[in-house]
Design a protein around this nucleic acid. Sequence first.
DNA 1: TGTATTTTACTTGTCGACAAGAAATATGCC
DNA 2: GGCATATTTCTTGTCGACAAGTAAAATACA
Lengths: 235, 235
Amino acid sequence: MSASDTTATAERKRGSGVRMVYELLRDQILDLELPPGAIVDEIQLADRFGMSRTPIREALVRLAAEGLIDTLPNRSTMVSQIDFANLHTFFDALTLMYRVTTRLAAEHHQPADLDRIRRLQRAYEDAAQARDEIAMIATNRDFHYAIAEAGRNRYYLSLFGRLLDEGRRILRLYYYSSFEGELPGEYLREHEAIVQAIAARDIEAADRLARAHADQIVRQIGKAITRDRRQDIAI
Amino acid sequence: MSASDTTATAERKRGSGVRMVYELLRDQILDLELPPGAIVDEIQLADRFGMSRTPIREALVRLAAEGLIDTLPNRSTMVSQIDFANLHTFFDALTLMYRVTTRLAAEHHQPADLDRIRRLQRAYEDAAQARDEIAMIATNRDFHYAIAEAGRNRYYLSLFGRLLDEGRRILRLYYYSSFEGELPGEYLREHEAIVQAIAARDIEAADRLARAHADQIVRQIGKAITRDRRQDIAI
DNA sequence: TGTATTTTACTTGTCGACAAGAAATATGCC
DNA sequence: GGCATATTTCTTGTCGACAAGTAAAATACA
C-alpha cells in the first residue's frame, strides 16, 4: 500500500533532500513497511523523490552505518535482517540501558524534562486507548527516549536510541499482537510509577522499576515468540 | 608532518576507495594528527587520493554519522571537538562498558578468544617496553576490544568501540603524559589479572577487576587534567 | 577613515553520464 | 537434452561539470 508518496519535483532546499530520504526510509524500515530482506533500489528512489542518485546514496550510507541496511558490493542493497539468533543479547542490552538511563534521569532531570516526559506518557495513553498499534510503538519509544535525554549522557542515549529503534521492528512483529486486543494497562501503571520515581529523585526505585518494566517486556515478547514457534510446528 | 601519503593513482579495486579513505581519516583523527577543529577539504582529499569527490564524500558521511566530524551546511566540515564539559559522562559510560564486556567475556569466551586476548596483551607489553605512545594507546584499545568481542554482544561492542575510539583522543592528550616516562606497570598487572579472571570464568572477579581498572584510568586522567588546569592558571 | 554594499573566490550540494561488476539470459557445442 | 561459454541486462561505483550558497575581498560612499 503506502500510496505513492511522491513529494517529487517540489522545490526543495539545497541539502534537505538527504535528511528527508534518510528519515523516510528509516521510518519505513522500522515500521516494517520495508520488511527485512526488501531490496532498496537507488534509481527507483531517485525517481520517486525526483532527485539524482547522489543524495539518495548519502542517505543509504548513513542507514548502512547504523546497520539498518546491508549493501553487497556491486550488487543490491537490502533491508537488514533481524538477528533472532541473538535476541537475548538485545534484551540484555535493552534492560541495562533502561536501568541506567532511568537512574540518571532521576538524578539529573530538570523541570522541563518532566513536562516533556509526562506529555509523552499521555500520548502513549491516548494511542493505547485508540488501539493504534503503530502510534503505541512510536510513543512508547519516545517516552523512554525522553527519560534517557533527561539523564544527560549522550553515549547511553545513542546506544539506547539504536536499541529502541531495533525494538520497534521486533515489537511490530510480536509484542502488541500478544495483548490480543486487551489494553496494556500494566504498562501504563508501570510508566506512571517510573515517572513518579524520577520526579521524587529516588534513584534506587527508578532502577528497580525500570528493571521490572524491562523484565515484563522481555517476558511478554518471549511468550509471544514461543507461541509463534509452536504454531510453526503445528502446521 | 606525516609525509605526503599519496597512494594516489595506483590502480584500486572498485569500491575499496571509500573504506580506505574512511579508515585513514579515522586513524588520523583519533591519533590527533588531525586535531579537533581542523578543517577537512573534499577537493584536497580527492587530489591526495587521486579519486573524485564522490567516494571521499561517502567516507565523510560515515565519519559524520559516528560523530567524528561535523559538517556545517554549505560550509566547511571540521574534525569534531572533544566534549570536555561532559567528560564525566564519558567516564561513566566507559566504566560501565568495561565491566559489562569483561563480565560477558568471562561467561562466554571460547579458547580462540583467549589466544587472541593474550596475544594483544603481549603486544601492549611490547609497546610499553618500547615506550611507543601511539602503539600503547592502540594496543590497549585492541586488548579491551578483543575482550568485548569474546563477550559476544554486538550492542555493547558498538558502544564500547565508540568509547574506546573517543578515548584514544583523550588519552593522546592526557593519559600517557601523566606517566612521566615511567612504564605503566600497574596496568600490565591489572591486565594480567583480568585475563586470568576471564580464563577462570570468574564473573564477579572479572567485574571487580574491570571496575578497578576503569577507576584507575579515570583517576589518572583526572589527575593529569587537574595538573594541566593548574598550569593554565599559573601562566 | 570607517561603514555599507557589491563583487569575487571558494566550498559544498547536485546532476547526468559513463565504467565496472555480477546475475540472468542466450548461444554454441557435445 | 545437458553443460560450458559468451552475451546481455541491470545495478552499483565513479567521474567531471555545474549550481547554490557562504565568507572574504574589493569597492563605493559618507
